[in-house]
Computed example of a mutant assay.
Amino acid sequence: MDEETLEQVRSVVAAIPPGKVLSYGDVAELAGLRSARLVGRIMAEDSADLPWHRVLRANGTVAEHLRSRQLELLRAEGVLADGARIDMRQYRWGG
């Protein structure tokens, strides 16, 4: 993966405001990419300094291994889950 792609994804994720979320596919689209999986890979490898918790699966769920922490961080910003799912229609950022 090239540096430009990495920076495009990082820029989109950094811009998501508190209280809003995007899906991996949303991030890919805004970054000009075709692959939500590539966004997931970038997030897994290089997102410690980003609001990574604001990026979810398209159905509003989070990765199981991040579930507690991610939902806690979102809740602190006013994003409330219904069980383990975030209502993407309510909280999705318009970009």
Rank of each mutant, 00 (worst) to 15 (best):
L73D: 03
A36I: 07
Q8P: 02
V79K: 00
H65Q: 07
A48H: 03
G94R: 13
Y91C: 11
S47M: 11
K20F: 04
I42M: 02
Q90C: 01
A84V: 10
E4Y: 03
M1H: 08
L30Q: 11
T61D: 02
M43H: 00
I86K: 08
G40I: 06
A63K: 14
G60K: 04
L50P: 08
L38R: 08
A31Q: 02
T5A: 10
V62T: 08
L74E: 10
Q70K: 15
A76Q: 14
H53S: 07
V12C: 09
M88P: 12
R67C: 08
V39D: 06
R89S: 04
V12M: 11
L73W: 07
S35H: 01
I16R: 05
G94L: 11
G32T: 06
A15Y: 00
L50A: 10
L73Y: 09
V79Q: 06
A15R: 04
V12E: 08
P18D: 13
S23A: 14
M43Y: 01
M88V: 10
D46W: 12
M43W: 04
Q8V: 00
I42E: 01
T5M: 05
L80N: 07
W93H: 09
L71M: 10
S68P: 12
Y91E: 07
L71Y: 00
I16H: 02
R85F: 02
R37F: 13
V9A: 08
V62F: 00
V21P: 09
A36F: 14
P51A: 12
V39S: 06
N59Q: 01
V9F: 03
L71H: 01
M43I: 08
S35K: 05
T61R: 02
G94V: 10
R75K: 15
Q70P: 08
L22D: 03
E7A: 12
A36W: 11
V12P: 04
R10E: 12
G95Y: 08
R54Y: 07
G25L: 02
S68C: 08
I42T: 02
E77W: 01
D2S: 15
V79Y: 00
L50I: 15
R10S: 11
Q70M: 15
A48N: 05
Q70A: 15
L38H: 05
W52Q: 08
G60L: 03
L56Q: 03
L71F: 01
R75F: 15
L30V: 12
A58N: 13
L66G: 06
S23V: 14
M1D: 11
R37C: 02
Q70C: 14
E4F: 00
D82P: 02
R37A: 09
A36L: 04
P18L: 06
M88E: 01
E45R: 11
G95D: 11
V13P: 01
R67D: 05
L38G: 03
N59S: 06
G83D: 11
S68W: 10
Y91S: 13
V62G: 05
Y91V: 08
V12Y: 09
R10T: 04
A63D: 14
A58Y: 10
G19F: 04
D46Q: 10
R57E: 09
A31D: 05
A58P: 10
S68G: 15
V55L: 06
L30D: 00
L74K: 13
L56V: 04
E29R: 15
E64M: 02
Q8A: 14
M1K: 04
R69G: 05
M1I: 10
A58E: 13
R67S: 10
A76D: 15
Y24W: 10
H65L: 13
R57Q: 07
L33T: 05
L74N: 14
